[in-house]
Simulated assay, not measured.
Amino acid sequence: MKDEKIWELIVLKLSGEATPDQEAELEEALKQRPDLALQAGMLEGIWSSRQEREQPDTANSFNRHLQRLSNHLSDGTLKYDTEARTTQRTFSLRAILPAAIAACLALGIIIVLLPARKEKMPVAAAQNEIWTKKGSRSKLTLPDGTEVWLNASSKVTYGNDFNGDTRKVTLEGEAFFEVTKRNGIPFIIHTDMVDVKVLGTTLNVRAYADEKITETALISGAVEIVLQRNPEKKIILRPDEKLVVRNDTATLTKPEPMLLLTQVHYLDKKQQNPPAEALWMKNKLVFDSETLQQIALKLERWYDVKVIIQDKQLEDVQYSGIFENEDISEVLYALQLTGNFHYSIRKKVVTIGL
Rank of each mutant, 00 (worst) to 15 (best):
Y158S: 01
S70T: 04
G45R: 10
W149E: 09
T86R: 13
K79L: 10
A95K: 15
R50W: 15
E119Q: 12
A102W: 10
R50S: 14
A40S: 04
H65F: 03
K79R: 15
S138C: 13
T141W: 05
N71T: 14
L78Q: 15
A124D: 11
P143D: 08
Y158L: 11
L105Y: 13
K79V: 04
L69A: 05
E54W: 09
S70C: 07
V123I: 09
L66W: 14
A106T: 03
P115W: 12
A40R: 10
A95R: 15
I101T: 01
D81Y: 02
L105C: 13
K120W: 14
V148P: 00
E52P: 02
G76F: 05
L140W: 00
T77D: 15
P115N: 00
A102H: 05
R53L: 08
A126C: 08
A106C: 10
L73M: 12
E54Y: 08
A95N: 06
V123C: 04
L107Q: 09
Q127F: 09
C104N: 07
T146F: 06
L107R: 14
G41F: 11
A116Q: 11
I46D: 05
E119F: 13
L107C: 02
K120E: 14
Q67F: 06
P122F: 08
K79T: 15
A84P: 11
T141D: 00
G108Y: 12
K139A: 04
N151P: 10
G135L: 11
A103K: 13
L140K: 09
R85Q: 03
L107E: 09
T132A: 09
P122E: 03
R117A: 12
P122R: 07
E83L: 15
T86C: 03
W149C: 06
Y158I: 11
A126P: 09
L114F: 15
A102V: 13
R94T: 08
A95D: 03
A99I: 12
R68W: 00
W149A: 06
T141A: 05
H72G: 07
E129Q: 12
M42S: 14
